[in-house]
């Protein structure tokens, strides 16, 4: 796919949500959420169940109207033309089980503005890309759950969207198909597609996303690059693996504690300690290092730290009717 033209407004940002608010009854489900996604960027959108992810996504896609705030897609409020440049794989997904695959893909493509005569070719290409060609003559109801999910992904990307929204795209897929979808998402990103990727799986975010946005109780509590966030949440502990014993390290300046950790050691620094100082001291002491790194938390640990592990689970679906009472 050719590089996408940038008409996303300033700095090539095709998707920009500013100050989104949404209230259902007495509950503010989304509060002052702002979000930008650049071309060729994959943004992980994470948060606990009921945090407001799906409602935010629906507002960004103009399925729900926000009570406050604005959404601009490709530099303007979303309209029919913009809608055709978006691909959306919702968490609550499905297809017509009684229909065969070609007419479904054709219908979905036409709704995205693909001319009728071009639709079959694009559908075939998407099916081939996801290894579904042999299933083409089948009815959806004849496919396994995983294949149905792949088919829906094919329907989502067949019209070559420039803004792709994936809500829990890998749930229910086997590892082979997860890898296939991840590779496809990566290819789309490389082609310049802006991807918003909502998930509970932090490992997927770490693997796929350039940036992560965390939402809790309707508010964004974390927004930044994956590495940057991990670095920001890095601890004052060092992980060291070497051939020799390290109890002597306790006597080094800036070191508060030394303990075994797996096959190596964990060194805790005091307020005056620094990783660079400890590294230099170890090398000066002739220690042959196999591994030396600052211990950084995983995104999951950061997530749990922020939202509180005791209040939320990482699996399961967002409360389904949380967004159902909206006047779209």
């Amino acid at each position: 796919m050719a590089a996408l033209a940038s008409d996303g407004g300033p700095h090539g940002v095709p998707v920009r949500a500013s100050g989104l608010w949404k209230r259902f009854g007495a509950l503010d489900v989304v509060r002052d959420v702002s979000l930008e996604i650049a071309q060729g960027e994959v943004v992980g959108f994470v948060g606990p169940n009921g945090a407001g992810k799906s409602t935010t996504i629906r507002m960004m896609l103009d399925i729900f109207a926000p009570d406050q705030g604005t959404v601009e897609v490709f530099g303007a409020p979303i309209d029919d033309a913009a809608r055709r440049r978006i691909g959306y794989l919702p968490e609550e997904r499905g297809l017509y089980p009684g229909l065969r695959i070609p007419p479904i893909l054709k219908y979905m493509a036409e709704l995205k503005g693909v001319p009728t005569q071009e639709a079959p070719g694009l559908a075939d290409a998407a099916l081939e890309r996801l290894g579904l060609t042999e299933h083409r003559p089948k009815k959806v109801g004849e496919l396994s759950r995983g294949l149905r999910q792949l088919l829906q992904f094919a329907a989502t990307i067949q019209h070559k969207p420039e803004f792709l929204v994936l809500d829990e795209p890998f749930s229910g897929l086997d590892p082979v198909n997860v890898r296939l979808m991840k590779n496809t998402v990566a290819e789309l990103r490389d082609d310049g597609v802006a991807v918003l990727f909502s998930t509970h799986q932090m490992t997927d975010v770490e693997e796929l996303c350039d940036r992560v946005v965390m939402i809790n109780h309707g508010e964004i509590v974390l927004n930044g690059g994956v590495r940057e966030i991990r670095r920001q949440h890095a601890s004052d502990r060092l992980l060291v693996e070497c051939a020799s014993d390290l109890p002597f390290a306790l006597s080094l300046p800036g070191v508060a504690k030394v303990e075994t950790h797996g096959d190596g050691w964990r060194i805790s620094l005091n307020d005056d300690g620094s990783a660079e100082g400890v590294l230099r001291a170890l090398l000066d002491a002739g220690v042959q290092l196999d591994r030396f790194e600052r211990e950084a938390p995983t995104l999951e640990e950061i997530f749990l730290q922020i939202v509180g592990a005791s209040d939320h689970t990482l699996d399961g679906n967002e409360t389904p009717d949380a967004g159902a009472r909206a006047g779209g």
Binding site: R58, I63, D80, R93, Y96, L111, G328
Partner: peptide, 18 residues
Amino acid sequence: VEEKENRVMEVLLSSVKP
């Protein structure tokens, strides 16, 4: 109702106004 039951509705609504 079928489109609500089989969850096609949300896909459609990302492409076309209600």
